[in-house]
């Protein structure tokens, strides 16, 4: 026997022995006679189950990417008009103009009117002087002028003077 063949023989024997050993149990079936004696044929399947199951699977699986693309195409036909409708609705002004009577009924307005959030002890700071000035020491005109300067809102400059 050549050197090479002898090497192969021992190499093959080792790997076949390893494969056998890997599949050996670490216990002896003789110690578990009840389980070892059981037959494993208690479960049945309906007649023709595997043939029918295969047909069902093929029906439920997508056929190809082309079919998926077609589905997207049909979905786009439905979704685009809907998206346009939603977009056009969003462009419309959503401010609801209420009649005066309805505005007067707002609880929040009543709450603000009744609330003493602007107390006499509140104060303003004028930037140019850094002086602290209490509201109660100011004329209404001065307060309006201050607010107008600060906020730069046109409507505030045209508030009626009480």
């Amino acid at each position: 026997m050549s050197e090479e063949k002898r090497k192969d023989y021992f190499k093959n024997m080792k790997s076949s022995l390893q494969a056998k050993l890997v599949d050996e149990e670490i216990f002896d079936w003789k110690d578990f006679p009840t389980l070892a004696s059981l037959e494993k044929n208690e479960l049945l399947v309906p007649d023709g189950y595997f043939e029918n199951s295969k047909r069902h699977l093929h029906r439920s699986s997508p056929k190809s990417n082309i079919r998926i693309f077609s589905m997207f195409k049909y979905a786009a036909v439905l979704i685009l008009p809907l998206a346009f409708f939603i977009w056009s609705q969003l462009q419309e002004p959503t401010i609801e103009i209420l009649p005066i009577a309805a505005v007067n009924d707002f609880e929040s307005i009543e709450y603000l009117a009744e609330d003493d959030w602007l107390s006499e002890d509140d104060f303003l700071i004028f930037e140019d002087t850094d002086e602290i000035t209490l509201f109660k020491d100011l004329d209404t005109e001065d307060i309006i002028e201050y607010i107008s300067n600060e906020s730069d809102i046109y409507d505030l400059e045209h508030l009626p003077i009480f």
Binding site: T34, L35, L38, N41, E42, L43, L44, V45, P46
Partner: peptide, 11 residues
């Protein structure tokens, strides 16, 4: 589709 006896049920 279960055709087992008592011991199979136990198993």
């Amino acid at each position: 589709f279960f055709d087992g006896d008592e011991i199979h049920q136990k198993l």
